[in-house]
Design a protein around this nucleic acid. Structure first.
Lengths: 338, 338
DNA sequence: CTGAAAGCGCTAACAC
DNA sequence: GTGTTAGCGCTTTCAG
């Protein structure tokens, strides 16, 4: 049988309270006693039962992480960052993917109400805002990643989309590109909206407002990027000088279609993405880098701070974005052959 | 305050045992009573405490998953498959990354001894075989993914490396490629060994044994693939007709170097990888597809079966591999222009 | 500094 | 079918 705290008590000749104190690193234990208890634990190969601790202390030392269903490799970096911080603080990570809209709510409730976790980290889930607001009022701290809660200021870690999109746009403008098209993300995506807005604003500032027909609707998927490109090519209109895809997946889809139609990037049209996913590196796509690992770290840092009440329930954090210049929109002026 | 089982008892005017029975779907409850209890639960917005259930029942309905430190996007697919099966069975996933060799053992012990999980799934971790064998004898079921336990037959889910490597090799041979080089994985990797062995065997069967200088040592990383390619090019020897990289990362590294040296794939040399990672698709790399999601599913299925003792502790499962023919080694004979 | 005692919220025999 | 009764293994006042 596996040893329990009582076994340790007997062997060390102390009370359960003392063993518990040693377990929890309380300073109220005489060094000699601590020694004895430690030895007893080692001798018995004792390991405390997590369930019992959770029940008695009402804390699980666990963080629940809710992912959106689409498991883009994208998120594994985020997860990795989360684990780094969590394990530094002796916390564990419980994860769940949403397999559908109903699921999201169910998972949510479960983690919260069944007290499986001391805090919740929610990634870019399409929780109805009402639920999100209710949730934010719960006792369990919640951190939203990459999706602010409308109306209720909850803890939130986001991407600096505005700077990223501005950098990308300025890069194109400075290289002499005009008539820049944009492939947008889904209308209800916060990131998509911000990226588009910053793109438009930067263009305006440069004195050349965005023309409506250069706004191509996408959905953050490779297919939607390809479809947008197809539509334009089939329309017979001349290519824009550059395209800003508001994420890499769509940029990759568009690029594929361009290739299929014999158009070259960047010679015939420059292309910039957003995210800097793994494939972007391999394809040499110029893009805006989003530090995924850092986002994960920030989210867990916030969650832990909330658990210790060291941070207001309205804390927010933005992770910075940077431009990564590669072949699809190189760092030299338009028309100059590398 | 959040409602407890006792509150439900009072409201439904039944004993705790009955509520517990309803909670656990026992058939030994009269329909009318069940109704009443259900209503009471709903009225109180009752959700059982996971900690209390775990403590009382000695089961956590949780599976722990140990990942190797390197969080290749690769694993997010596996994780997704695991979650699919786990959530179907109302199980939760606790995950941890190994940040170093010491960590692995610590994580391992914790999940096992602290009874956080009902079973453990270990991904391709470099646990010393001794520990792995000890672990396999524990009460807690363990499933190893992609790494058989030497000496002790534990539960194991692996890749059909042999078929995959054979298919890749046959493809090249049938297209007329001779003098095929291979970039190997790390010597201590089981997958790497199997892939190399199957490559060698297939070559032998075709009557042209592998020449030693065509075996290039790699380490499953992009850099190691690039380095192997560099070494060969610098040696001044003529290119082989084809290269079989035993994983995609190395194939991609080698390809990059080939490009930098002005060599074309597949015209100057054909290239085949292994894994079918996301970038392989984008780069149009011919490769052996490993169904990651399916591997995750299989691992959790095995784990759950073990928990219910429906499967022997020695159960093994191989996930099938298939060849995906793309541009880097097309489906037409060598020398024929597409 | 240490111990006694009272739970934490559920499950599982065992009776009835 | 349902209730009674013990715990599960720890934490946490409260005394001393």
């Amino acid at each position: 049988m596996t040893a329990t705290l009582r076994d340790v008590c007997r062997r060390a000749r102390v009370s359960s309270a003392t063993v518990s104190r040693v377990l929890n690193g309380s300073p109220l234990v005489a060094p000699a006693t601590r020694q004895r208890v430690r030895r007893a634990m080692a001798a018995l190969d004792y390991h405390p039962s997590q369930a019992a601790r959770s029940l008695a202390s009402a804390r699980s030392r666990t963080l629940a992480v809710l992912f959106p269903g689409i498991a883009s490799g994208f998120y594994s970096e985020v997860l990795c960052g989360m684990d780094e911080v969590a394990s530094e603080h002796d916390y564990h990570l419980l994860i769940a993917f949403s397999h559908g809209p109903d699921d999201q709510e169910r998972l949510f409730i479960r983690c919260l109400r069944e007290r499986r976790a001391d805090a919740l980290v929610v990634l870019n889930l399409n929780l109805p805002d009402a639920l999100a607001r209710t949730a934010a009022k719960q006792a369990t701290p919640i951190v939203f990643v990459d999706r602010p809660v409308q109306g209720a200021k909850g803890c939130w870690v986001g991407i600096d989309n505005t700077t990223g999109a501005r950098l990308a746009t300025e890069h194109l403008l400075e290289r002499g590109y005009r008539r820049i098209a944009v492939i947008t993300g889904p209308r209800d995506s916060y990131d998509a909206q911000q990226r588009l807005a910053a793109f438009r604003a930067t263009l305006s500032r440069s004195g050349q407002p965005l023309e409506p027909w250069l706004v191509w609707q996408g959905a953050f998927t490779e297919e939607s990027g390809a479809a947008a490109m197809e539509r334009w090519l089939r329309s017979g209109r001349p290519l824009p000088e550059a395209i800003f895809a508001t994420n890499d997946a769509m940029a990759i889809g568009a690029w594929r279609v361009l290739k299929e139609h014999g158009r070259r990037v960047p010679q015939d049209v420059a292309l910039v993405g957003f995210d800097d996913c793994e494939s972007a590196r391999h394809l040499e796509l110029t893009t805006v880098r989003v530090p995924m690992r850092q986002m994960g770290r920030a989210a867990v840092e916030l969650a832990l701070a909330r658990i210790q009440q060291q941070e207001p329930a309205t804390a927010q954090r933005l992770v910075p974005t940077t431009l990564v210049v590669r072949r699809s929109a190189p760092g030299i002026a338009k028309g100059v052959t590398p």
